[in-house]
């Protein structure tokens, strides 16, 4: 374990890229999830179909393929290369936004119909019903699945090592392993622990937000949501 300090410092050099990609990807995911998720519930068929194509198209193709497509095929089509980290955030956001759209749609639909009827009886406009009554309640339901999705996104940032972004996985695999091959076990264990800590940070933040959102609708987070909020796969 003599080289532990070296391992830590080399891996840490990749940390900013991992964190920027995660935070940027999460922000883009949130925006796309709400836009596409609400579009899935639109009364206009055209809007619904466009959103459905986005969701199924991005969920149906492999994220690795999407990454390479944006890095190698898109520049040919548009005529210039996007800054790698931006392209990375774009892929992470586009891909996870498609999954998030279904989370938003499902949560909005889970708000009891009676709440919408209460809002109609008070003559609120369709926009006011959504913003003031439905979404504040739906957001509570979204928190646990979004926590899972964000952890999934964090894990996906490791794929950016394929396209020369020097995040922590690339630091381990390209810089450390060639020099300290016999200590591969320590290097990768350390790397895995770093991801574990980052995912625990995401879960801690999301649980806090869930508590705040649940308190606003006069509820405690359910036992089910607590169990779900522990990083699971997205099918």
């Amino acid at each position: 374990m003599d080289n532990l300090g070296t391992f830590l410092s080399v891996l840490s050099q990749g940390l900013p890229f991992t964190i920027i990609a995660t935070v940027g990807g999460i922000l883009l995911t949130i925006v796309l999830s709400f836009v596409a998720g609400l579009a899935l519930l639109s009364s206009s068929k055209t809007v619904r179909v466009i959103s459905r194509i986005y969701v199924e198209g991005l969920r149906g193709t492999s994220e690795v393929v999407q990454l390479f497509w944006i890095f190698f095929a898109l520049p040919v089509l548009v005529g210039f290369q996007i800054v790698p980290i931006w392209a990375g955030i774009l892929v992470l956001g586009l891909n996870h936004g498609a999954y998030g759209a279904e989370i938003v749609r499902g949560a909005v639909q889970s708000v009891p119909r009676a709440q919408v009827e209460g809002a109609i009886a008070l003559n609120l406009t369709p926009g006011q019903r959504m913003r003031r009554v439905v979404l504040p309640q739906a957001v509570v339901e979204m928190m646990p699945p979004f926590n899972n999705l964000f952890i999934q996104l964090l894990k996906s940032t490791s794929l950016l090592s394929f396209v020369s972004i020097n995040e922590i996985t690339r630091q381990a695999q390209q810089v450390l392993v060639p020099r300290f091959n016999p200590q591969a076990f320590e290097i990768f264990l350390l790397l895995l622990v770093m991801y574990l800590i980052l995912s625990l940070v995401i879960t801690a933040i999301m649980r806090t937000l869930e508590r705040v959102a649940a308190a606003r609708v006069g509820r405690r987070p359910s036992a089910r949501s607590r169990r779900q909020a522990t990083g699971a796969g997205v099918a």
Binding site: A114, Q115, E117, G118, A119, A121, V133, Q137, V217, G218
Partner: peptide, 11 residues
């Protein structure tokens, strides 16, 4: 309108 289940907004 007043509903059987009240339909107050919990948020």
């Amino acid at each position: 309108m007043v509903f059987q289940q009240f339909n107050l907004f919990p948020n």
